Simulated assay, not measured.
Amino acid sequence: MGDEPPPESTLAEPTTADSRRPIAVLVVDDHPMWRDGLARDLGARGFTVAGTATDAESATRTARTVRPDVVLIDLYLPAVLDAIMGIALELPDSRVVVLSASGPSQDAVEAVKGGASGYLDKSASVEDLVNAVQRAAAGDAVFTAGLAGLVLSEFGRMSADPQSPWLTDRESEVLRLVGKGLTVRQIADRLVISRRTVENHVQGVFRKLQLHNRVELARYAIEHGLDGESEE
């Protein structure tokens, strides 16, 4: 699906880190009402809706053209992991946040391993959505308690691999508390550390998971012709 012009905004524009332009978002979903409604909500709050797409293949193609700061994509589109990995490899400055109506799952963990910056439930409020897009554009990991618990379990499965990234004791402790549903403030109070330190620990876990996957991404690029040796 081609680009759609963003709705007119009457609010202050959320901007990129350099504050020179609004955050550009690509919205990918196969349900027209949800996709168009999300685009309207973002446009009304000052984001630039750089385009929309209905499937994973057109998402990758459109992302190459518009180079968005953030891609919001439905987790259960066919071939969505291929799109996430392709965007992460080809467009490292574009952050991918997966959206799901069914709650965190192993599929969400695989999306994060494939290069997604995080996960957001479709039942989240518009305010939560705006916050998630701004955080993703700034390079932060977007996570929920359920996803954090699944990521921690994934590290447990990966621990037998000598090339796996190892969590520090504090990272494990923080992530277990997040997985139990504690808020950042509650974790900070319990561990007597700042809220920013809590957030840094969780983001560090996500970064380690993604760094572990760079070898797999490189292998994917070679196998799928994304290493510059094939035509687009």
Rank of each mutant, 00 (worst) to 15 (best):
R196H: 14
T144Y: 10
G181C: 11
L191K: 00
V198D: 00
D169M: 04
D128V: 04
V151E: 03
L167K: 02
Q134C: 06
L129V: 04
L147N: 01
P165R: 02
N131R: 10
E171V: 03
L191W: 13
L175T: 10
S159W: 10
R190P: 10
I193C: 05
V198I: 15
L152M: 08
G139K: 07
R196V: 14
R157P: 04
R135V: 07
V174E: 00
S159M: 07
M158H: 03
L191G: 00
G139A: 08
V198N: 00
L167Y: 07
G181L: 12
Q163H: 12
P162D: 06
D140L: 06
V184K: 03
L147W: 08
Q186G: 01
V178A: 14
Q163G: 03
E171S: 05
V151C: 05
L147Q: 01
H201V: 05
V202G: 00
T183P: 04
D189H: 09
T197F: 10
D169H: 09
F155W: 08
R135L: 12
A145M: 03
L177E: 10
E154Q: 14
D189K: 07
I187M: 12
G204V: 12
I187C: 04
A160C: 09
I187V: 14
R196F: 13
E199C: 06
S172E: 15
G179N: 07
D169I: 09
N131S: 14
R195C: 13
K180G: 15
Q186R: 04
D161S: 05
H201E: 15
V133L: 12
D161C: 05
V142N: 02
A136E: 03
L182F: 14
T168Q: 11
Q203Y: 07
Q203S: 12
H201T: 04
R190T: 15
R157E: 09
A188H: 09
V184L: 13
E173L: 13
V130Q: 03
D128L: 06
L182T: 03
A160H: 12
R170S: 14
M158N: 01
T168F: 09
R195V: 13
R135G: 15
T183I: 12
T168M: 11
R176E: 15
G156D: 15
A136K: 02
V198G: 00
L152R: 10
F143T: 07
F143E: 04
P162V: 09
V133K: 01
V184S: 06
V133M: 11
L177S: 02
V142T: 02
P162Y: 06
T168R: 01
A138N: 12
P162T: 03
Q186V: 04
A141Q: 06
G156N: 11
E154P: 01
L175P: 01
L191R: 01
T197P: 04
A148W: 02
V198Y: 01
A138L: 05
G146A: 05
E154N: 07
V133W: 09
Q134Y: 08
D161W: 07
K180Y: 15
D169V: 12
G146V: 06
G139P: 11
R190S: 14
A138C: 10
D169L: 10
L191I: 08
G204Q: 12
G204W: 12
E171A: 09
F155P: 01
Q203K: 11
V174K: 00
